[in-house]
Amino acid sequence: MKYYSYYPGCSAEATASPLGVSVAPVAKKLDMELAELEDWNCCGSTPYWSVDKLEAAAMATRNLALAEKRGFDLVTPCSNCFVILHETNNYLKKLPYFKEKVDKALAAGKMKYNGGVRVRHLAEVLYTDITPDGISAKVTKPLKGLKVGAYYGCQLVRPDGFDDPESPHSLDEIITSLGADAVNWEMKARCCGSSLVMPEQEVALGLVNKLLKNATEHGAECLITPCPLCQINLDAYQSVVNSQFKTHYNIPVLFVTQLIGVAMGIPANELALSGNIVSPMRVLAPYL
Protein backbone atom coordinates (compact mmCIF):
# COMPACT_ATOMS: atom_id res chain seq x y z
CA MET A 1 0.00 0.00 0.00
CA LYS A 2 1.23 3.49 -0.87
CA TYR A 3 0.01 6.45 1.21
CA TYR A 4 -0.78 9.98 0.04
CA SER A 5 -2.79 13.03 1.04
CA TYR A 6 -5.36 13.85 -1.62
CA TYR A 7 -6.41 17.29 -2.83
CA PRO A 8 -9.35 16.97 -5.29
CA GLY A 9 -9.75 20.67 -6.14
CA CYS A 10 -13.05 22.48 -6.72
CA SER A 11 -13.69 21.20 -10.27
CA ALA A 12 -13.47 17.53 -9.30
CA GLU A 13 -16.55 18.12 -7.14
CA ALA A 14 -18.53 19.82 -9.91
CA THR A 15 -17.79 20.38 -13.60
CA ALA A 16 -15.18 17.61 -13.56
CA SER A 17 -17.12 15.23 -11.33
CA PRO A 18 -16.35 12.17 -13.53
CA LEU A 19 -12.74 12.75 -12.52
CA GLY A 20 -13.58 13.04 -8.83
CA VAL A 21 -15.73 9.90 -8.97
CA SER A 22 -13.31 7.73 -10.94
CA VAL A 23 -10.19 8.43 -8.89
CA ALA A 24 -11.31 6.48 -5.81
CA PRO A 25 -12.02 3.01 -7.30
CA VAL A 26 -8.90 3.19 -9.48
CA ALA A 27 -6.69 4.15 -6.53
CA LYS A 28 -8.15 1.26 -4.54
CA LYS A 29 -7.32 -1.27 -7.25
CA LEU A 30 -3.79 0.11 -7.46
CA ASP A 31 -3.24 -0.15 -3.69
CA MET A 32 -2.99 3.59 -3.18
CA GLU A 33 -4.44 5.23 -0.11
CA LEU A 34 -5.56 8.72 -1.15
CA ALA A 35 -6.78 10.32 2.08
CA GLU A 36 -8.70 13.51 1.27
CA LEU A 37 -7.24 16.56 2.98
CA GLU A 38 -9.73 17.60 5.62
CA ASP A 39 -11.44 20.93 4.94
CA TRP A 40 -9.19 21.85 2.01
CA ASN A 41 -9.89 25.18 0.31
CA CYS A 42 -9.54 26.52 -3.26
CA CYS A 43 -5.89 26.29 -4.38
CA GLY A 44 -5.87 29.96 -5.31
CA SER A 45 -5.88 29.14 -9.03
CA THR A 46 -4.65 31.24 -11.96
CA PRO A 47 -7.43 33.88 -11.73
CA TYR A 48 -6.68 34.60 -8.05
CA TRP A 49 -2.97 34.42 -8.87
CA SER A 50 -3.57 37.21 -11.43
CA VAL A 51 -5.49 39.49 -9.09
CA ASP A 52 -3.46 39.27 -5.89
CA LYS A 53 -0.50 36.94 -5.62
CA LEU A 54 -0.09 37.18 -1.87
CA GLU A 55 -3.72 36.34 -1.11
CA ALA A 56 -3.62 33.54 -3.67
CA ALA A 57 -0.44 32.13 -2.16
CA ALA A 58 -1.89 32.38 1.34
CA MET A 59 -4.88 30.32 0.16
CA ALA A 60 -2.59 27.71 -1.37
CA THR A 61 -0.41 27.61 1.74
CA ARG A 62 -3.35 26.88 4.03
CA ASN A 63 -3.70 23.61 2.08
CA LEU A 64 0.02 22.91 2.33
CA ALA A 65 -0.13 23.48 6.08
CA LEU A 66 -3.05 21.05 6.40
CA ALA A 67 -1.11 18.47 4.40
CA GLU A 68 2.05 18.97 6.44
CA LYS A 69 0.25 17.90 9.61
CA ARG A 70 -0.44 14.56 8.01
CA GLY A 71 3.04 14.11 6.55
CA PHE A 72 2.54 12.46 3.14
CA ASP A 73 2.98 13.77 -0.41
CA LEU A 74 0.04 15.95 -1.48
CA VAL A 75 -1.49 14.56 -4.67
CA THR A 76 -3.95 16.42 -6.88
CA PRO A 77 -5.65 15.23 -10.08
CA CYS A 78 -6.08 18.84 -11.32
CA SER A 79 -3.36 20.35 -13.49
CA ASN A 80 -4.08 23.93 -12.45
CA CYS A 81 -4.19 23.09 -8.72
CA PHE A 82 -0.89 21.26 -9.25
CA VAL A 83 0.82 24.29 -10.81
CA ILE A 84 -0.47 26.72 -8.18
CA LEU A 85 0.35 24.56 -5.14
CA HIS A 86 3.73 23.57 -6.60
CA GLU A 87 4.70 27.13 -7.60
CA THR A 88 3.62 28.46 -4.20
CA ASN A 89 5.92 25.91 -2.60
CA ASN A 90 8.73 27.15 -4.88
CA TYR A 91 8.11 30.82 -4.07
CA LEU A 92 8.16 30.10 -0.35
CA LYS A 93 11.52 28.39 -0.75
CA LYS A 94 13.11 30.98 -3.04
CA LEU A 95 11.68 34.30 -1.87
CA PRO A 96 12.26 34.99 1.85
CA TYR A 97 10.42 38.37 1.77
CA PHE A 98 7.38 36.66 0.30
CA LYS A 99 7.51 33.76 2.75
CA GLU A 100 7.60 36.23 5.64
CA LYS A 101 4.33 37.80 4.49
CA VAL A 102 2.65 34.45 3.82
CA ASP A 103 3.75 33.26 7.29
CA LYS A 104 2.20 36.34 8.89
CA ALA A 105 -1.05 35.87 6.98
CA LEU A 106 -1.23 32.21 7.98
CA ALA A 107 -0.51 33.05 11.60
CA ALA A 108 -3.64 35.23 11.58
CA GLY A 109 -5.56 31.98 11.05
CA LYS A 110 -3.46 30.22 13.71
CA MET A 111 -1.68 28.11 11.13
CA LYS A 112 1.93 27.47 10.22
CA TYR A 113 3.67 25.89 7.25
CA ASN A 114 7.32 24.77 7.45
CA GLY A 115 7.84 23.94 3.79
CA GLY A 116 7.81 20.18 4.22
CA VAL A 117 5.23 19.07 1.68
CA ARG A 118 5.90 17.68 -1.77
CA VAL A 119 3.13 18.53 -4.25
CA ARG A 120 2.51 15.99 -7.00
CA HIS A 121 0.11 15.50 -9.89
CA LEU A 122 -1.86 12.26 -9.81
CA ALA A 123 -0.73 11.44 -13.37
CA GLU A 124 2.89 11.76 -12.27
CA VAL A 125 2.27 9.49 -9.27
CA LEU A 126 0.62 6.90 -11.51
CA TYR A 127 3.58 7.04 -13.88
CA THR A 128 6.43 7.23 -11.36
CA ASP A 129 5.22 5.36 -8.27
CA ILE A 130 2.74 2.87 -9.68
CA THR A 131 4.48 2.69 -13.10
CA PRO A 132 2.99 1.51 -16.41
CA ASP A 133 4.10 -2.06 -15.52
CA GLY A 134 2.30 -1.85 -12.18
CA ILE A 135 -0.85 -0.65 -13.92
CA SER A 136 -0.52 -3.33 -16.59
CA ALA A 137 -0.39 -6.00 -13.86
CA LYS A 138 -3.92 -5.02 -12.75
CA VAL A 139 -5.47 -4.96 -16.23
CA THR A 140 -8.21 -7.57 -16.60
CA LYS A 141 -9.81 -6.26 -19.78
CA PRO A 142 -7.04 -5.21 -22.17
CA LEU A 143 -8.24 -2.45 -24.49
CA LYS A 144 -6.97 -4.26 -27.59
CA GLY A 145 -7.50 -2.37 -30.82
CA LEU A 146 -8.67 0.88 -29.17
CA LYS A 147 -6.90 3.92 -30.60
CA VAL A 148 -6.44 6.47 -27.82
CA GLY A 149 -4.92 9.95 -28.08
CA ALA A 150 -3.16 11.19 -24.95
CA TYR A 151 -4.00 14.85 -24.46
CA TYR A 152 -1.61 16.24 -21.87
CA GLY A 153 -2.73 19.84 -22.05
CA CYS A 154 -0.32 22.41 -20.65
CA GLN A 155 0.01 22.51 -16.91
CA LEU A 156 0.79 18.83 -16.33
CA VAL A 157 4.04 19.27 -18.26
CA ARG A 158 4.73 23.02 -18.01
CA PRO A 159 6.20 25.15 -16.49
CA ASP A 160 7.81 22.60 -14.19
CA GLY A 161 6.37 19.20 -14.98
CA PHE A 162 7.86 15.73 -14.79
CA ASP A 163 7.69 14.90 -18.49
CA ASP A 164 9.09 16.46 -21.68
CA PRO A 165 7.36 19.88 -21.92
CA GLU A 166 7.20 19.77 -25.74
CA SER A 167 6.72 16.10 -26.54
CA PRO A 168 5.62 14.19 -23.44
CA HIS A 169 5.28 10.41 -23.41
CA SER A 170 4.12 9.31 -19.93
CA LEU A 171 0.40 9.08 -20.70
CA ASP A 172 1.17 7.32 -23.99
CA GLU A 173 2.99 4.66 -21.97
CA ILE A 174 0.01 4.37 -19.63
CA ILE A 175 -2.29 3.90 -22.66
CA THR A 176 -0.02 1.12 -23.95
CA SER A 177 0.02 -0.50 -20.51
CA LEU A 178 -3.77 -0.86 -20.80
CA GLY A 179 -3.39 -2.83 -24.04
CA ALA A 180 -4.63 0.07 -26.20
CA ASP A 181 -2.82 1.80 -29.06
CA ALA A 182 -1.41 5.25 -28.29
CA VAL A 183 -2.04 7.56 -31.24
CA ASN A 184 0.90 9.78 -32.08
CA TRP A 185 -0.36 13.32 -32.75
CA GLU A 186 1.50 16.59 -32.82
CA MET A 187 -0.76 18.75 -30.67
CA LYS A 188 -0.94 16.53 -27.60
CA ALA A 189 0.58 19.20 -25.35
CA ARG A 190 -0.84 22.35 -26.98
CA CYS A 191 -3.32 24.66 -25.30
CA CYS A 192 -7.12 24.13 -25.27
CA GLY A 193 -7.88 27.79 -24.49
CA SER A 194 -8.37 27.13 -20.77
CA SER A 195 -10.69 29.51 -18.91
CA LEU A 196 -10.62 31.91 -21.87
CA VAL A 197 -13.59 29.82 -23.03
CA MET A 198 -15.79 31.97 -20.77
CA PRO A 199 -14.71 35.54 -21.57
CA GLU A 200 -13.41 34.94 -25.13
CA GLN A 201 -15.26 31.91 -26.35
CA GLU A 202 -14.46 32.17 -30.06
CA VAL A 203 -10.71 32.36 -29.49
CA ALA A 204 -10.71 29.37 -27.13
CA LEU A 205 -12.93 27.27 -29.37
CA GLY A 206 -10.61 27.98 -32.31
CA LEU A 207 -7.88 26.24 -30.32
CA VAL A 208 -10.19 23.35 -29.38
CA ASN A 209 -11.05 22.91 -33.06
CA LYS A 210 -7.36 22.63 -33.98
CA LEU A 211 -6.84 19.97 -31.31
CA LEU A 212 -9.85 17.88 -32.28
CA LYS A 213 -8.91 18.13 -35.97
CA ASN A 214 -5.36 16.98 -35.33
CA ALA A 215 -6.41 14.11 -33.05
CA THR A 216 -9.11 12.76 -35.39
CA GLU A 217 -6.86 13.08 -38.45
CA HIS A 218 -4.44 10.75 -36.71
CA GLY A 219 -7.17 8.22 -36.09
CA ALA A 220 -7.90 8.72 -32.38
CA GLU A 221 -11.21 7.08 -31.38
CA CYS A 222 -11.14 8.75 -28.00
CA LEU A 223 -8.90 11.08 -26.02
CA ILE A 224 -7.73 10.92 -22.43
CA THR A 225 -6.66 13.92 -20.37
CA PRO A 226 -5.68 14.48 -16.74
CA CYS A 227 -6.98 18.08 -16.65
CA PRO A 228 -10.54 19.18 -15.64
CA LEU A 229 -10.54 22.32 -17.76
CA CYS A 230 -9.12 20.57 -20.85
CA GLN A 231 -11.78 17.89 -20.50
CA ILE A 232 -14.61 20.43 -20.28
CA ASN A 233 -13.37 22.44 -23.25
CA LEU A 234 -12.96 19.37 -25.46
CA ASP A 235 -16.04 17.50 -24.25
CA ALA A 236 -18.75 19.95 -23.16
CA TYR A 237 -17.95 22.48 -25.90
CA GLN A 238 -17.53 19.91 -28.69
CA SER A 239 -21.07 20.51 -29.99
CA VAL A 240 -20.49 24.28 -29.96
CA VAL A 241 -17.29 23.76 -31.95
CA ASN A 242 -19.25 21.63 -34.41
CA SER A 243 -21.83 24.34 -34.99
CA GLN A 244 -19.30 27.17 -35.08
CA PHE A 245 -16.82 25.50 -37.47
CA LYS A 246 -19.28 23.26 -39.39
CA THR A 247 -17.40 20.18 -38.20
CA HIS A 248 -18.73 16.75 -37.18
CA TYR A 249 -16.56 15.67 -34.28
CA ASN A 250 -17.96 12.91 -32.12
CA ILE A 251 -14.92 11.98 -30.09
CA PRO A 252 -15.26 11.04 -26.41
CA VAL A 253 -12.83 12.71 -24.03
CA LEU A 254 -12.18 10.62 -20.93
CA PHE A 255 -10.28 11.37 -17.79
CA VAL A 256 -7.14 9.22 -17.50
CA THR A 257 -8.58 7.44 -14.46
CA GLN A 258 -11.79 6.55 -16.33
CA LEU A 259 -9.89 4.68 -19.06
CA ILE A 260 -7.59 2.95 -16.56
CA GLY A 261 -10.70 1.89 -14.63
CA VAL A 262 -12.35 0.37 -17.71
CA ALA A 263 -9.23 -1.72 -18.40
CA MET A 264 -9.20 -2.89 -14.78
CA GLY A 265 -12.79 -4.09 -15.04
CA ILE A 266 -14.33 -1.43 -12.79
CA PRO A 267 -18.08 -1.04 -13.57
CA ALA A 268 -19.11 1.94 -15.72
CA ASN A 269 -21.19 3.56 -12.96
CA GLU A 270 -18.22 3.66 -10.56
CA LEU A 271 -16.27 5.51 -13.24
CA ALA A 272 -19.11 7.98 -13.95
CA LEU A 273 -18.94 7.18 -17.66
CA SER A 274 -22.45 8.64 -17.97
CA GLY A 275 -20.98 11.98 -16.90
CA ASN A 276 -19.14 12.50 -20.18
CA ILE A 277 -21.10 14.79 -22.49
CA VAL A 278 -19.91 13.04 -25.66
CA SER A 279 -20.83 9.50 -24.69
CA PRO A 280 -17.88 7.09 -24.62
CA MET A 281 -20.18 4.04 -24.54
CA ARG A 282 -19.96 3.27 -28.26
CA VAL A 283 -16.16 3.09 -28.39
CA LEU A 284 -15.89 1.39 -24.99
CA ALA A 285 -18.70 -1.15 -25.52
CA PRO A 286 -16.36 -4.02 -26.52
CA TYR A 287 -14.50 -3.67 -23.21
CA LEU A 288 -17.32 -3.14 -20.73
Binding site: D39, N41, D52, E55, A58, M59, R62, L106, G109, M111
Partner: peptide, 20 residues
Protein backbone atom coordinates in the same frame (compact mmCIF):
# COMPACT_ATOMS: atom_id res chain seq x y z
CA UNK B 1 -15.41 24.99 3.96
CA UNK B 2 -15.77 24.67 7.74
CA UNK B 3 -12.76 26.85 8.49
CA UNK B 4 -14.19 29.97 6.83
CA UNK B 5 -13.41 32.14 9.86
CA UNK B 6 -9.81 31.06 9.83
CA UNK B 7 -9.50 31.50 6.04
CA UNK B 8 -11.07 34.98 6.18
CA UNK B 9 -8.54 35.96 8.87
CA UNK B 10 -5.69 34.70 6.68
CA UNK B 11 -6.92 36.53 3.58
CA UNK B 12 -7.67 39.76 5.45
CA UNK B 13 -4.19 39.73 6.91
CA UNK B 14 -2.71 39.12 3.44
CA UNK B 15 -4.69 42.08 2.12
CA UNK B 16 -3.52 44.24 5.03
CA UNK B 17 0.09 43.32 4.22
CA UNK B 18 -0.43 45.05 0.88
CA UNK B 19 -0.21 42.46 -1.85
CA UNK B 20 2.94 40.66 -2.86
Amino acid sequence: IKGMGELKAILNKARELGGA
